[in-house]
Amino acid sequence: MARTLIQAPASARKGEVVELRVTIAHPMETGYRPGADGRVLPRDIIRRFSCRYNGEVVFSADLFPAIAANPYLSFHLLAGDSGTLEFEWQGDNGFAQVERRTLQVT
């Protein structure tokens, strides 16, 4: 499991726009860079990030080799109902990780 850092508020008012910031530890090897032995290192990147809010995909992004190592994303979500936020990363070599946070809406 890769280490993740998720900045999400625990509670929000209904209709409030909350900022969500996520990073995940990942080398994001581009596939263009030679390694110590002079051979090009194979590509190993995270291809897709998605965020589900109560089961519905509210935000997703396709990531390409030009994303810096330890991919950082921030986006703004409109708080609707209380529920879970599910963050999912998928990548090369079968990389997959899901993290969950609950959001209390008052």
Binding site: V17, Y53, E56, V57, V58, F59, S60, A61, D62, L63, F64, A66, I67, A68, P71, Y72, L73, S74, F75, H76, L77, L78, G80
Partner: peptide, 16 residues
């Protein structure tokens, strides 16, 4: 990067 916009998010994203 390609960001997909939905009604529940603002079209305002950042990355590195």
């Amino acid at each position: 990067a390609k960001f997909d916009v939905s009604d529940a998010v603002e079209a305002n994203f950042s990355t590195r």
